[in-house]
Write a protein that binds this DNA or RNA. Structure first.
Length: 222
DNA sequence: GTACTGATCGGCT
DNA sequence: GCCGATCAGTACG
């Protein structure tokens, strides 16, 4: 098992508050290629982010913050860099709060390429199929053991979480409408790494076969 | 590979 | 009760 804090995702790579204090569209794009990991006891669980969606503070009825703060979405209005975890269809999804306090915008993490604690994540998901571990927002939360107890945690400071700079993927990001929403279903606010095999959704939205893996690119260049 | 269906359950009204 | 930023299973090309 790889040691998360040796070379893959050192503490010095951790994203700081100012990274998140920008509009959610920019943050969603730039989170692609970053490492996202949760520590459970001695084991780190997580991987490289390959698919995200932005939810805007203004003119976005699909955003959970659109009707202002309430008991279930309060952390969407917390400090930028906080986790917003909510339940949906008997599963959980995890977001990162953007901009700042009282704004109500966030980025949904839709898919990661599994890297750390893969065997534990396979156990948590009840499958050995690599493409069924973290290729969807509900899958990520069950694989990485995220539930409402993580809601509101500040990932720029928590010792149980790290979100850090990883791979450069700016040149191969594709934008499409967001998945599974009824309102504002036309806005192109979903972003993913072109050709990555762990992205959810339709293969034909990629410009090439969905086979690439960020970790392999890393091995080739090192 | 794509399209469609229905189970599931926390948090709301 | 009702709803949903989902997913697994099924059917089909």
């Amino acid at each position: 098992m790889k040691n998360l804090n040796s070379f893959d995702l050192p503490e010095s790579n951790r994203l700081q508050r100012n990274f998140f204090q920008r509009d959610p569209e920019t943050v969603a794009r730039e989170l692609l290629g970053c490492g996202f990991a949760h520590r459970c006891g001695d084991e780190w669980l997580g991987g490289w982010i390959v698919e995200t969606e932005a939810y805007l503070a203004n003119d976005d009825p699909a955003c959970h913050g659109a009707r202002g703060p309430g008991s279930s979405n309060a952390s969407m209005f917390a400090e930028a860099g906080s986790l917003y975890v909510y339940p949906i269809h008997a599963k959980f999804c995890v977001n990162l709060v953007t901009e700042g306090v009282d704004i109500g915008s966030a980025v949904l993490i839709r898919a990661i390429e599994p890297v750390w604690g893969i065997d534990i994540m396979m156990q948590n998901r009840g499958t050995t199929d690599p493409r069924r571990i973290t290729s969807g927002p509900g899958m990520i939360c069950s694989a990485m053991r995220v539930d409402r107890s993580s809601d509101g945690i500040d990932v720029t400071r928590s010792s149980e979480w790290i979100l850090g700079v990883g791979h450069q993927v700016n040149h191969k990001v594709i934008a499409t409408p967001r998945i599974g929403i009824r309102e504002a279903a036309d806005l192109p606010l979903r972003f993913f790494v072109d050709g990555n095999r762990y992205v959810s959704g339709l293969a034909r939205q990629h410009s090439r076969p969905r086979r690439d893996v960020l970790g392999q690119i890393n091995q080739r260049s090192s």
